[in-house]
Amino acid sequence: MQAAAAARAGMASPLKTASKALWHELTGSFFALFAASFTIAIWQTRANATSAVPADRYRFLAFCALALLFAYFSVSNFLRAKRRN
């Protein structure tokens, strides 16, 4: 009985560590996709950012803030995954 519990504990710990690292890499990839899509939106709205319409400028700045935020989330998740290994 004790041997089975020890074997289960011996297998569970590395599996738990690997699954957490994989989860961080997966969420980091999704955040990177969002950051890339906001970067594309920045590129498409850059010409209107200097227009007289304030909504265009605010949209451009919002895309910049969101791209930086999701890039930060992506990098931090990959660093957490690296720390788990």
Rank of each mutant, 00 (worst) to 15 (best):
M1A: 09
A3G: 09
A4D: 10
A5E: 05
A6T: 14
A7I: 00
R8F: 12
R8C: 09
G10F: 00
G10K: 00
M11P: 01
A12R: 03
A12K: 00
A12S: 13
A12M: 00
S13N: 08
S13Q: 12
S13H: 05
P14Q: 06
L15N: 06
K16R: 09
K16E: 11
T17W: 00
T17G: 01
A18F: 08
S19A: 13
S19K: 08
K20F: 14
A21C: 06
A21H: 08
L22E: 15
L22Y: 15
H24C: 09
H24F: 06
E25K: 13
L26R: 09
T27P: 00
G28R: 00
G28V: 04
G28M: 02
S29A: 07
F31A: 15
F31R: 01
A32L: 02
A32Q: 01
L33T: 07
L33R: 07
L33Y: 02
F34Y: 13
F34M: 14
F34L: 13
F34C: 15
A36S: 07
A36P: 02
S37P: 01
S37A: 15
F38K: 01
F38H: 07
T39N: 08
T39I: 04
T39H: 05
I40A: 15
I40S: 12
A41N: 03
I42F: 03
W43R: 13
W43F: 13
W43S: 15
T45A: 11
R46V: 04
R46M: 04
R46T: 05
R46P: 00
N48W: 07
N48Y: 15
A49C: 05
T50P: 00
S51H: 03
S51P: 02
A52E: 11
A52V: 14
A52G: 13
A52N: 14
A52M: 08
V53T: 12
V53N: 14
P54G: 13
P54S: 10
P54M: 06
P54F: 09
A55L: 08
A55C: 04
A55E: 10
D56M: 03
R57Y: 09
R57M: 08
R57G: 14
Y58F: 10
R59E: 08
R59P: 00
F60D: 00
F60W: 01
L61F: 12
L61R: 07
L61C: 13
A62D: 10
F63K: 05
F63H: 14
F63I: 04
F63G: 04
F63Y: 12
F63C: 06
A65E: 13
L66Q: 07
L66E: 12
L68V: 09
F70S: 05
F70R: 01
A71G: 11
A71K: 06
Y72A: 14
S74H: 02
S74D: 01
S74F: 02
V75Q: 06
V75N: 04
S76R: 10
S76E: 06
N77D: 13
F78L: 01
L79G: 11
L79H: 12
R80M: 12
A81C: 03
K82Y: 12
K82V: 04
N85H: 11
N85V: 10
